[in-house]
Design a binder for these strands. Structure first.
Length: 338
DNA sequence: TGCCAGGCCTGTC
DNA sequence: GACAGGCATGGC
């Protein structure tokens, strides 16, 4: 079944391609296909209209080791209004399929982009130029564990390689997303006629528990390299309850940051990515090599001795309460230059 | 073939 | 606090 909603101030391509999520693929027909929770989503934008297709026969019984056990108690709890609420749907819920509420929350369509941009300092010309270039780019509300694991894998990797690692983790450790009859939902290769009838089901992202009980060797097989030991140790700490991801949303920003950097392989940059992309901390401003390059070029063109610490302070004081949204525009803009 | 990648950890100064 | 080296691997 195909459904549509009106989406002002929104750019699906910029939002899904800007590097904040790693499981979206654009098909030749302009449809984006991705896995969110235990659902395969298909989305397309035409002008101010967002279309999506839902599977008419969702799996009736998600397995006991669901990907989103962290949020199982919050599922289907009604329309969330606070930014830091979890919004990840589960399949097989009442009515099944993909609802407008899930789409709206995941894509942050319930937020006013003009109002957010209005908080950016008026004298920050490079930022406003980036916002104009990528008008409609929104910060997603992703699932914290998948976001954290993906960014642990991102360390010193190119985005194309991160996508590959996340896909390998899902295919090896996740669960196939199938209909009740066992057939793949939205089979991955169906859109590529060169591959004939061959189909492979999409897989959910593996749960914390599954990764915590995986072997180091099996994680290495997913091309994680030296990051394998970090992902394993982090999963075990979370699985043990040493760090509670679902408690982060209710913390102050600084406290949540402190909690995340306790995890092996998680420094300030990765922690800020998780806080921004999955925990609703709009002020989080991840500083990676791209943003550092952009900040130096745009704001300190003739000052060559600016330290990383000074850049951090600059970011904290020059982008306002939605610094993370500003960061994502600058990040995408910087990448597009290349 | 060699550089570099949405970093982090550790040791050294 | 600042900095360098090491860590695995693959795209370009």
């Amino acid at each position: 079944m195909r459904q549509r909603i009106n989406v002002p101030d929104f750019d699906l391509a910029a939002t899904l391609d800007c590097g904040q999520a790693f499981r979206w693929k654009r098909g030749g027909d302009a449809w984006y296909v991705g896995v969110v929770g235990r659902e395969v989503w298909r989305l397309r934008q035409e002008g101010h209209t967002l279309e999506w297709e839902t599977d008419p026969k969702p799996t009736p019984n998600p397995s006991k080791e669901g990907n989103f056990g962290l949020h199982s108690k919050k599922r289907n709890s009604g329309l969330c209004t606070k930014n830091r609420d979890s919004v990840i749907p589960s399949s097989g819920g009442a009515g099944g399929g993909l609802s407008e509420m899930h789409i709206t929350k995941y894509l942050s369509l319930d937020r006013s982009l003009p109002a957010i941009v209005a908080t950016f300092p008026v004298d920050n010309a490079p930022l406003h130029a980036a916002v104009r270039r990528h008008w409609g780019l929104r910060v997603l509300r992703q699932e914290p564990w998948e976001c954290l694991a993906s960014f642990i894998a991102s360390s010193s990797k190119q985005i194309v390689q991160i996508r590959q690692i996340v896909e390998l983790l899902a295919n090896r450790f996740g669960e196939p997303i199938t209909n009740a009859d066992g057939r793949a939902r939205w089979p991955q290769r169906a859109e590529d006629p060169r591959l004939g009838e061959a189909t492979e089901p999409y897989h959910s992202f593996p749960s914390v528990g599954v990764i915590a009980r995986a072997s180091h060797e099996h994680l290495l097989a997913c091309k994680l390299g030296f990051r394998a030991k970090y992902l394993l140790a982090t999963a075990r700490m979370i699985d043990n309850g040493d760090v509670k991801l679902d408690a982060l949303r209710s913390m102050e920003y600084e406290r949540a940051l402190e909690e995340l950097v306790r995890l092996p392989g998680v420094g300030e940059k990765i922690a800020n990515c998780v806080l921004l992309f999955s925990c609703g901390f709009d002020e989080a401003f991840p500083i990676d090599v791209w943003i550092e390059r952009a900040l130096r070029r745009l704001y300190f063109p003739r000052k060559h001795n600016v330290t990383h610490r000074q850049l951090r302070e600059f970011a904290r004081s020059h982008f306002g309460p939605y610094a993370g949204w500003a960061q994502q525009c600058l990040f995408f803009s910087e990448r597009m230059r290349k």
